[in-house]
Amino acid sequence: MATVKFKYKGEEKEVDISKIKKVWRVGKMISFTWDEGGGKTGRGAVSEKDAPKELLQMLEKQ
């Protein structure tokens, strides 16, 4: 499965696309949330040019 790689608060992170729940556009950035388990929700953002095609497809479906 595809993953999204991004930096959050200076830390490199990687999230499996299948865990992503919500995707939206903020200017030229793609923001998203995912389920971290245990009732926690993670947040992240990646530039439109660095976003994997699967993430962009999720954005178009909404």
Rank of each mutant, 00 (worst) to 15 (best):
L55I: 04
G38Y: 04
K28S: 06
W24N: 02
A51F: 03
E54R: 05
D16K: 10
G27P: 11
V4I: 08
K7T: 10
F32I: 04
I17C: 06
E11F: 07
Q57F: 12
D35V: 06
G38A: 09
V46W: 01
L56I: 14
K53C: 15
V23D: 00
K13H: 09
E14N: 04
R43D: 04
R43K: 14
V26L: 08
W34L: 01
K61P: 12
V46Q: 03
K5E: 01
E36Y: 07
K19Q: 10
G39N: 12
I30S: 00
Q57H: 07
E14F: 03
K19I: 11
W34H: 05
S31C: 13
V46S: 03
L55D: 00
S47V: 08
T41L: 11
V4Y: 01
P52M: 03
K7V: 07
K21A: 15
D35K: 05
V23M: 11
A45R: 11
K9L: 05
L56V: 13
T41K: 11
G10T: 02
I17L: 12
V23I: 05
L59W: 05
K49I: 12
K49P: 11
W34F: 07
L55F: 05
K5Y: 02
R43V: 13
K21D: 09
S31D: 10
E36G: 04
V46P: 00
K19M: 14
Y8H: 08
K7P: 05
Q57I: 10
Q57W: 11
M58P: 02
V15F: 01
E60K: 11
S31L: 05
T3R: 09
T41C: 15
D35S: 09
K22H: 15
K13L: 10
S18N: 11
M58K: 08
L56P: 02
E12G: 03
E54C: 12
G42F: 14
Q57G: 07
G42A: 11
P52L: 04
G39W: 08
K61G: 13
K61L: 14
E48G: 05
L56K: 12
K61F: 11
L56T: 13
T33C: 15
G27L: 13
E11N: 10
L55V: 04
K40D: 12
Y8R: 01
K7M: 13
A2T: 14
D50R: 09
T3E: 01
G27N: 13
K28G: 14
K13N: 03
E14W: 04
E60T: 11
M58N: 04
M29H: 13
T3A: 03
E60R: 04
S47M: 11
W34S: 01
D35E: 05
V15A: 03
G44N: 03
M29N: 09
E60H: 08
M29L: 11
E12N: 06
D16E: 10
E11Q: 10
G39K: 05
G44R: 01
K21I: 15
A51N: 02
M1T: 08
K40N: 09
V46C: 05
Q57E: 07
T3H: 03
E12H: 07
K53S: 09
K53I: 14
G27S: 11
W24R: 03
E48D: 13
R43F: 11
K19Y: 14
W24D: 03
G38K: 05
L55Q: 00
K28F: 08
K49H: 04
E54Q: 08
M1D: 07
E14R: 03
E54P: 06
K19P: 01
W34V: 02
K22P: 01
K61C: 15
E11W: 03
A45H: 06
W34G: 00
G10D: 04
V46F: 02
G37I: 10
S47G: 14
E14L: 04
G10C: 14
V23K: 01
Q62K: 07
K13R: 10
K40L: 12
M58E: 11
L55N: 00
K5I: 04
T3I: 11
L59Q: 05
G44F: 15
T41E: 15
G10V: 01
K28L: 08
V26Y: 10
V4S: 00
G44H: 06
G38W: 08
F32V: 04
K49E: 05
F32R: 00
W24G: 03
E12C: 13
G38Q: 09
I17F: 02
W24P: 00
Q57D: 09
K7R: 13
A45M: 09
G44E: 02
A45I: 05
K9C: 15
T41Q: 07
G27M: 14
V4T: 01
G38R: 08
F6M: 02
F32S: 01
I17R: 02
W24K: 03
G37W: 12
S18D: 13
G37L: 13
Q62D: 15
K19A: 07
G38L: 09
S47Q: 11
V4D: 00
Y8A: 02
G27H: 10
A2K: 05
K21F: 15
G37H: 10
K7C: 15
P52G: 04
G38H: 08
V26I: 11
V46L: 05
I30V: 09
K13E: 02
S18G: 13
K9M: 12
F32P: 00
P52Y: 02
E54K: 04
R25M: 14
F32E: 00
L56F: 13
R25I: 12
K19E: 12
L55C: 01
